[in-house]
Computed example of a mutant assay.
Amino acid sequence: DGVTSQQPYSKLILAVGANPIRLAIAGDGSDDIHVVNSLIDYRAFRENLAQRKDKRVVILGAGLIGCEFANDLLHSEYDITVIDLAPQPLGRLLPGHIASAFQQNLEEAGVKFALGTTVEKVSKINNGEDYAITLANGQTLVADLVLSAIGLQPNISLAKSADIQTSRGIITNGLLETNQADIYAIGDCAEVNGTLLPYVMPIMQQARALAKTLSGQQTAVHYPAMPVAVKTPAAPLTVLPAPVDVEVNWETEEFDDGMLAKAIDNEGTLRGFVLLGATAGKQRLTLTKLVPDLIPAQA
């Protein structure tokens, strides 16, 4: 109704999250591409899926979310094709040789990949019952549903309008303070000391620290080494990414059901790791203890 109101505050926390990135794709079917970033999105996706006569789903994005969705839909016997411009899945998280093994495991489970290419057009066919997906490499796929999972964009528009400093996310210091007094940021929107980590464990660390600060006990956020478990049972995977500004060499150990790769810096310190398969996964806790904190605890 156009009516605005003001809400006084003593402390303000921006927990505005992130939105799925949407590609500009041609074709009369592009508006029907699903994104999932909430229970409402997910319900709409599943309801639409249930109405389709066939079980062909095309997923845009071979990152963490795209691969997890692909594995999940396999259990319901869907025909899944994952498309990505990168030459391998999880290209930002995994070294090449592990990415190849991960891809092979998912392919053996039934997932198909179209890599090194992008979607140019999504068109309605068969009276709107199906979609033709035209790829940049000249290939055309037919699907009942298209799901986009190409990543998240932190919501920074509100912060910008309030003259709060932003980069990829809303910039905060170790206390989760923005450059504006008494305004904090937390969650997928927060870029803490230059680091943006849209995962569960970092958000829990932020919440614990900020709760103490707001209760009168000023507490800086502490980021211990926090491995990410990728929910792909067809290829069990745990990743602790090495810091992007650290040069590392990979040392790999192979097992019958997977492999373990350690990211070692120039001083011989373990800075990250990748565990593929159940055997390697058993070393998660042992290895995590050897990796230095991303943001050390404050004394």
Score class of each variant (00 low, 15 high):
T195D: 05
E251D: 08
Q51H: 07
G66D: 04
Q103T: 05
A211Q: 07
R271M: 12
L214W: 05
P292R: 08
D182M: 03
L49Q: 14
I186M: 13
V248E: 02
G272V: 03
T117Y: 07
I264L: 08
V16N: 07
N179K: 05
A99T: 07
D182L: 01
S76I: 09
Q298K: 11
R43K: 13
D257L: 10
H75Y: 14
P243M: 05
I25S: 05
P202I: 05
L158F: 11
R271Q: 15
G216F: 09
F69Y: 14
G151D: 11
E68P: 12
M201L: 11
P227S: 06
G174V: 01
S100P: 04
V146L: 06
P8Y: 01
E77L: 14
V246Q: 13
L12K: 04
I40H: 10
E68M: 12
E267P: 01
G29Q: 07
K262I: 02
T195M: 14
V122I: 07
Y184Q: 02
E47V: 05
L158R: 01
G2A: 09
I13Y: 01
G96W: 01
T81V: 15
K121Y: 02
S167G: 13
N19K: 10
I171A: 10
D130M: 12
P292H: 08
N137A: 10
D144E: 14
V228H: 00
C67H: 00
S161T: 12
Q153D: 10
P236L: 04
A15C: 11
I21H: 02
V58R: 04
L12A: 11
I164N: 00
N193H: 02
A297G: 02
G277P: 04
N266W: 01
I203A: 10
